[in-house]
Design a protein around this nucleic acid. Sequence first.
DNA 1: GACGTCCTCCCCCGTGCGGGGGAGGCGGGC
DNA 2: GCCCGCCTCCCCCGCACGGGGGAGGACGTC
Lengths: 220, 220
Amino acid sequence: MPVTVLLVDDEPLVRAGLRAVLEAQPDIEVVGEAADGAAVIPLVRRLRPDVVAMDVRMPLLDGIEATRALLRTVGAPPKILVVTTFENDEYVYGALRAGADGFLLKRARPAEIVHAVRLVAEGESLLFPASVRRLAAEYGDDDGNRAARARLERARLTDREGEVLRLMARGMTNAEIAARLVVGTETVKSHVSAVLAKLGARDRTQAVIAAYESGFVAPG
Amino acid sequence: MPVTVLLVDDEPLVRAGLRAVLEAQPDIEVVGEAADGAAVIPLVRRLRPDVVAMDVRMPLLDGIEATRALLRTVGAPPKILVVTTFENDEYVYGALRAGADGFLLKRARPAEIVHAVRLVAEGESLLFPASVRRLAAEYGDDDGNRAARARLERARLTDREGEVLRLMARGMTNAEIAARLVVGTETVKSHVSAVLAKLGARDRTQAVIAAYESGFVAPG
DNA sequence: GACGTCCTCCCCCGTGCGGGGGAGGCGGGC
DNA sequence: GCCCGCCTCCCCCGCACGGGGGAGGACGTC
């Protein structure tokens, strides 16, 4: 009995690529595709896939909301493999908290992609090897997944800080951010300082760079 | 006689996607793949494809250098279709100047991708419709391609300015950039001011944002 | 009730940044 | 020959920024 997979990504090219890679395996079958998160639930109900390979950044309903919705509304939900372009994608951790079973980098080699699908299908939790290893090495912990998640939770920006960082990444000054959020500039300065500290950034420019590099904000 | 295509991209997933999309067409045949620019020339000599679909950002030899090398060393070179993630990618214009025949966004729909390959195979020059239309509208010119290229040439950063912007996008202060380039800080300030003016940015943070948004620098 | 977290706002203070000027040298193009 | 673009460096000046420190109120957890 083959592993059945549903592909969810807004880029047709990525779907075609995943389909080509996965269908080359005799024990994996792609049973459907969706271009946005909103279409996922009815498709899962109908197709009952073992695994959903889901992009995090999508129109209408993103991967986090789609994951949450799936686990809430579908009995015996499929395993959810979050597909992303960047390691340390802010959204990925959101998706993991929402209940996703693992994530996968788009730049992974076909063999890794296949491996990841098989692993989550078997019920294993999976963070992308490279980033897990790096984090484990960095914090001297051998229980990679759990430690990595915990650490990333601690360094996590608060809602307000994330909001401020997003506005910083749109090129706004502290005064403009203050006006937008209807608070004083001193408040914004506090949040900015917290963001800089948590991100290890020296100034707002470095913070914005970190936001782009981590995928916290995306170009385009 | 089908159109023969050689795929050049460092991401296996993108190659698989392009292959799946193009091979679905009876009149298009993918005759080979390469993962970096360095492998292109021998492959072109051997396979003689009609079209090379080439990523701009690649290890070893990027799309610009590969394009230049192809046109210089191969008799009766293939048509070159540059594949990119961002519109207004700095490298794309470099590739066009180097002699590429058109460019194509990765997020294009399969039909557009197929269309683009057919078009350049027939000898048409092609810039991605959306960006051409926007530029044409913006500058009130109906000769889209030519005007767009000319405009982008004028607003183009000088070599030094581009170098400075790249270092700005790595979070460096003016003093650090000056040390790196072995010039005075006043010189760097001049270049930074020029960059801000040409990019319409208010400060270095906005300039770095523009660099990311335009694909001048890429995350990851 | 005590504690922690988050959001809010306040002070002082040094400085990197960017604007507005100008200017010299050097190369290529007309 | 001349002009123009580019790279280099210089002056003055205002200010947004970021560090350091503190503090109050709201909310939830234990």
